[in-house]
Every structure is written in C-alpha cells, then in structure tokens.
Simulated scan of single mutants.
Amino acid sequence: MNNSINSLENKLGIKFTNKALLITALTHSSYANQYKNVQFNERLEFLGDSVLQLTITEYLFSFFKDKSEGELTKLRALIVCESSLYEIAKKLDLGNYIRMSKGEELTGGRERPSLLADCVEAVIASIYLDKGIDTVKKFIINNFVDIIDKATNNQIILDYKTRLQEILQRQGDVTIKYDLVKYEGPPHRRKFYTAVLIENKIMGEGSGYSKKESEQSAAKKALLHLEGKNV
C-alpha cells in the first residue's frame, strides 16, 4: 500500500504527514466489512463535501460579483455534482487506489461514478485535516478550474437527454428514439452501446457501463452534432 500511497501523493501534489488519513479516504465500506478495526471513508465524505461547498462558494462569491444569489447557486450546483467529482476522480486515476472488497470490484466498483465521487470528497477531507484550509482550497481550485470555466460559460449540461428533447421540440413534434446497439463484456463489467435516432436518422452514438450512461453519451453526441462541433 505504501508504494500506491506515494504514487497517489505525487498525483495529488501533496505529501501527507499522517498517511493514515489518506488510506482511510481510499477505503470503501465493503473493504472495512471484511476486516476488523478498519476505518472507511464515509465520515470523511461528509466533511469533504462541506469543505468543497465552502471553497467553491467562496470562489464564486469573490470572482463573480455581478451574479445574483440565484445565479451563483445554479453555478455551484453545476460545479459541485457527481459528474464533476467523477471527472476529477478519473483525472487522478483514483479507481486504481481505492481499497474495496473483491465483490465490489467485480461488479464495477472501480468505475462506478457515485463511488469515485464520494472518494474525491473523502480525499479532500483528508487533505484538509492533514494540511489545513489554505492547502485544500488551493488543491480544489487547481483541480476544478476547468469545470468552473465550463460552468460559467454554459458548457455543462447535467441531463443531455432532456436538453436534446428541449432543443428539438422547439421545431414541433419530433420523434426521438434510443436504440441499444449492442453490449459486450462479462455480466459484472458490461459495456452498453446506444444510438439516438431523430426522425429515424442516427444523430449520435454513445457508450457507458449502464444503459442510462450510454443513452446520455449518445444524447451528448447528438447535441454536439446539432451544434456543428466535431465529435
């Protein structure tokens, strides 16, 4: 575990004084259930969520003085959400460092968005407890700066299927259909491929580790197609 911790510390850009905090942040409850006296990361998630909310709130309040309370609240909701946390987790390759049960791993735990998002919050809490508020704020802003930029430029859409439907319905009644093209892989790690058809014409194709995720991916591709962007 020590080599893994050192590797992750390099990615985080932070050397922990109390490495046990980081190990706990990386420990899923399924792992703790297999061993006695092992702490897992749920309490750290609780703390990390608050630290993240405060940091992003303070940043938006300071740098977007022209925006109202309602606008700031909407921006924060776009930035502090499961999909953004999942993006950060993937960038840090957190899935490879999490301690989880074999059963959790076999059912796709290392790629599960909710599990990875929770782990990011726990890591944030571990940094806060080990290094203090200034260091964790710097870490958060450095890692969320691209997401903040996308959110403030209206480039983040949480529900691509709903957004696609809203845009197309401006033109009147339009038939939108999602077809499961294929799936592959073992039952515990199945990948789905979906095409979205608009008036029976394929406008986007996407994939994901659930049908819902693959449909959202296809809808996103369709939106980009409609906007004339490369996909």
Rank of each mutant, 00 (worst) to 15 (best):
I88N: 01
S83H: 08
G70P: 04
L92Q: 05
L85T: 01
K91H: 08
R76I: 15
T73K: 15
C81Q: 08
Y86E: 09
L92N: 03
E87T: 15
S83L: 06
S62A: 12
S62L: 11
K102T: 12
S62M: 11
A89F: 01
S84A: 11
E82C: 10
S84C: 07
L75G: 08
K74N: 13
L94F: 04
K65F: 11
M100E: 06
F64Q: 06
K91I: 04
L94W: 01
G70R: 10
I88M: 07
G95P: 07
K67C: 04
K90N: 12
L85I: 00
L75H: 08
L92S: 03
E71R: 08
V80R: 01
D66E: 14
A77Y: 07
S62N: 13
S83K: 13
E69P: 04
K90M: 10
K90D: 02
A89N: 00
L75F: 10
Y86V: 02
D66N: 14
F64M: 09
L78H: 07
K91C: 04
S68Q: 04
K74Q: 14
S83C: 03
L94A: 00
E69N: 10
K91R: 14
K91F: 07
K65W: 06
I88A: 04
S101I: 07
K74L: 15
L75V: 06
K65A: 10
S62K: 11
L92G: 02
S62H: 11
E69I: 13
E71D: 12
